[in-house]
Simulated scan of single mutants.
Amino acid sequence: MVEIISALTASGHKSICVYDIRLNLLGRIESWVSLVWPERYNVYSDTQGAQLELHDTTALQALCRPDRYLWLVGSDRLMRIVSAQKSDHKLVIAAKDAACILDERGHTDTLSNFAAEETLRSLVSSAAAWPCLELGDAAGLTDTYSGEVKPGSLLKLVEQVCQELDIGFRVRFDQPKAKLLFELFRPKLDPNARYAPQYGNLTDLTYTESITGYKNVCVVVGAEGTATVGAAENTGSARRELIVDATSKKKEGGQSQADYLAALRAQGEQELAKHTRLENFRFTPTGSITVGMVVEASLPGTDIQAAARITSVTLSSQKGENSVSTEIGTPIIRRKQ
């Protein structure tokens, strides 16, 4: 699998190339009023794509037409223009990641219990041809998707599977070969990549721990029985009890006592899930980062560590000034041994 260092965090001048639907180079844009360029891990639909604001000229109007691609030179992504609007002597371009090509194709079968990578690659390969779109190298992922997907958009299907299995996907731009390559990927934690405030590559550390509303035992009192769920063996200060009044709940016709108690336990599990201990550790990685990589951080002065996957990296560029923002997934928190 080819990994290209993110052009979003690279220093130096940035420029944009414009390609037609068959990836023929049409022109180059060297300056703009503003640019927002997001690169994502596995969510593309219903999200903001790229936005490019230009000083309006006849030449740029002719160049930046819907169904053409924008390429931030050095990036591994293309953005497909979906709209161009002239307003107040400005040309405002909206574009979506090339992965949204998959939203132009659908699948008609209900699928369940399948090998994720093999099946997704097969579905993309068998979809009606899209210019220059091919399969990239397989990532060798062995995950099985045990859920069910209904007929619909191919993009929605891939998003559903990849989000539930924590797999990334992209339509990567192979600029030398003029191809769009559908690929799955899942980077692992690099133990040699160290992120901390003192290294200047980690900011905005916040840690939250709360027991407000926390309960770990739920006793459901029904009209014809009582059920207890959770850490019932806990005693003393370790036991945090929640009592649920279900005395209005009686046996239904023909319902056995065992089934009745099972229904009470199910209600207790649902209630207990609303009263968990809250713990969250958030941080913003900076520096040389790529979408999908896993970043580990330590909370200074504590034994708390957290690892989180970078789910998006966004370049914002205005008047020659560039800034990069990141989003991370739900951190996995642990304490040093």
Results as ranks from 00 to 15, higher is better:
Q85R: 11
L155F: 00
E271I: 00
L180M: 15
P176Q: 02
C17H: 09
L157W: 03
E3R: 09
A139P: 04
L91W: 06
V171W: 12
L184G: 05
L299E: 13
S317Y: 08
A258H: 09
S34T: 11
T206L: 05
T144M: 12
M293E: 15
E53R: 10
Q257Y: 00
R277H: 07
T302Y: 05
S248L: 11
I310T: 04
V229T: 02
R239W: 02
Y207W: 14
T314S: 11
D56E: 10
E30F: 00
L133N: 08
A262P: 08
T212Y: 10
G152H: 05
I16Y: 06
S210K: 03
P187R: 08
A115P: 04
R282T: 12
N24Y: 03
S15F: 08
V161K: 07
T212N: 12
C64V: 15
N113I: 03
K90C: 09
L111I: 12
N280S: 15
H89V: 07
D46L: 12
I93K: 00
T330D: 05
T108S: 15
S146F: 13
S126P: 02
E134F: 11
D67H: 07
L54T: 10
E30S: 08
A238Y: 02
S153T: 08
I81R: 11
T314C: 08
D88A: 14
S248I: 09
L299M: 14
V221C: 04
R28F: 01
E53V: 15
L123W: 11
L52T: 14
L154S: 09
Y19T: 14
L154E: 13
A178Y: 04
N280I: 09
K319R: 05
G168S: 05
S45V: 07
L23P: 10
R28C: 07
E279H: 08
V220I: 05
E233L: 12
D204N: 13
V43S: 08
L242Q: 10
A127Y: 14
E233S: 15
D245L: 00
M293H: 03
T9L: 04
E134L: 11
Q305V: 01
L78D: 09
L133G: 09
T326R: 00
A139D: 04
G106D: 10
E148Y: 06
L154V: 12
Y41N: 13
G329S: 09
C132H: 05
K14S: 08
G320M: 02
A95H: 03
D103P: 02
L135Y: 07
E117T: 01
V171L: 12
L133V: 06
T144P: 01
P331Y: 02
L278D: 02
W32S: 00
N24A: 13
T235M: 08
E148G: 03
T57P: 10
E271T: 03
E53Q: 11
C17D: 12
A193T: 01
I81N: 03
D20Q: 01
P66E: 07
V92E: 10
L184S: 04
E269I: 05
T47V: 15
A263L: 14
K215T: 12
N42V: 02
Q61F: 02
K150V: 12
Q257P: 01
I328P: 11
A266T: 14
V124I: 15
K179P: 00
A262T: 14
F281W: 02
S34P: 06
D190Q: 13
P187G: 01
A50E: 06
I328E: 05
